[in-house]
Design a binder for these strands. Structure first.
Lengths: 114, 114
DNA sequence: TCAATAAGTCAAAAAATTATGACTACTCAA
DNA sequence: TTGAGTAGTCATAATTTTTTGACTTATTGA
């Protein structure tokens, strides 16, 4: 834990939770995880712009925040599944609230001819 | 706009909006702004751990994302007020969802004797 | 004219996050 | 014993975010 998170903790105890879900790949992974258990290689395929390292980091952080649980499945080619925890389930309404917004993420600096 | 935001835009159009509210000081400022217009000096006092530069950056970014509107009040000592925009108002339910969570942000690495 | 108040700006450094590209570890089946 | 599949690690580099600390601008009242 860093000073940064500590500061937010003091000022905005609840908003601190937001930090647990932010980062370049965490929101994407989280959303996939709400559909069912996800696997590393699956994420590599579904998020082709992400690097292995980036996904590993995101998965580790979600695991450390107790949002995902890592389960090794001792089967034929050896699997590892990440499941939403009870805590993880509690974050779903936040994403529901985001999805309820009927806004398109309009970007201000769009290229004129795209 | 950076490549990073663009990537998230592609993968998770809605979650992209989350990015507009993240950063070290933006969530705090946003929440104060939901209580009424906020001023620069007020934030300096309310968020003593933040630097002027940090607050300026956060306010500018919220302004550029069209979440806050900057209004110069030509009064006695010259004021500048930041108001939530219509877009800004639409983010409130997300914070309501966060506040509805009855979780304490329990930290795993708390000091043993605090 | 001078100081006070409000709202900043600026260049540089430090810290945190993310990317690169090669390499590892385990299991199983041929 | 060799190769294929899955799930990574590792050291380093690049990029982005945040901090530092001094400086600026505009208005006003004494």
């Amino acid at each position: 834990m860093t000073t940064q998170e500590n500061d937010i903790l003091i000022e905005c105890p609840k908003e601190y939770l937001l930090k647990l879900l932010t980062g370049k790949w965490k929101p994407c992974i989280f959303r996939y995880a709400t559909q069912g258990p996800v696997r590393f290689g699956q994420m590599v395929k579904l998020l082709p712009e992400a690097t292995r390292q980036g996904l590993t980091n995101a998965l580790r952080e979600l695991e450390e925040s107790d949002i995902l649980e890592r389960r090794v499945i001792k089967l034929k080619p050896l699997h590892v599944e990440y499941h939403l925890t009870e805590l993880g389930l509690e974050f779903i309404p936040i994403f529901k609230a985001i999805e309820a917004l009927n806004l398109l993420p309009v970007r201000k600096n769009q290229p004129l001819h795209s």
